[in-house]
Amino acid sequence: MADTPTLIEQAFSRLRRDVLIGSLAAGCRLKIEDLQDAYGFSSSPLREALSRLAQEGLVRADERRGFRVAPISLVDMADITRMRLMLDVQALADAIEHGTDAWEAAIVAAFYRLEKVEARLEGPTVLDEGWSSLHREFHMALIAASPSERQRAWSASLFDQAERYRRYSSTHRKGSRRKTNEHKRLMEATLRREVKIASGLLREHILGTQRNVESGLKALGQ
Rank of each mutant, 00 (worst) to 15 (best):
M77D: 06
R173K: 12
A102S: 14
H135L: 00
S23L: 14
L207G: 00
R14A: 10
G22E: 03
S42P: 01
G175Y: 09
F111E: 00
V117D: 15
T190L: 01
V213R: 08
D62I: 03
D88Q: 13
R203G: 03
K174C: 02
A78E: 12
V213C: 07
E149H: 10
L46D: 05
D128V: 00
E48M: 07
L207T: 01
V195T: 07
D79N: 15
N181E: 13
Q55S: 10
V59Y: 01
R47E: 13
R150V: 06
L7T: 04
S132T: 11
D18E: 12
S199M: 01
A25L: 11
V19M: 13
A141D: 06
E204I: 04
Q10D: 01
L158M: 12
R47A: 09
A119M: 12
I8V: 15
S148R: 15
A93H: 10
A11C: 08
P45Q: 01
K174V: 12
E194S: 05
R14Q: 07
A54M: 05
A153H: 15
L74M: 04
A145L: 03
T100R: 11
V75W: 14
E182F: 08
E163Y: 01
R136V: 13
D76V: 14
H172T: 14
T100I: 08
R152Y: 15
G175C: 08
S44Q: 07
G200W: 07
R120T: 14
Q90I: 11
D79M: 14
L7C: 09
L191V: 04
L127C: 06
L85Y: 09
A11F: 02
Q10K: 12
G208C: 10
F67N: 10
L158G: 11
H183E: 08
A49L: 01
E115I: 09
S170Y: 00
R211Q: 02
A26N: 06
E122F: 07
T180R: 15
Q36F: 02
L217C: 13
R185Q: 15
Y168G: 00
A144P: 04
Y165V: 03
L74I: 13
R211H: 05
L15R: 09
H183F: 09
M86P: 02
S157I: 11
G130C: 09
L35E: 15
L142Q: 00
K184I: 14
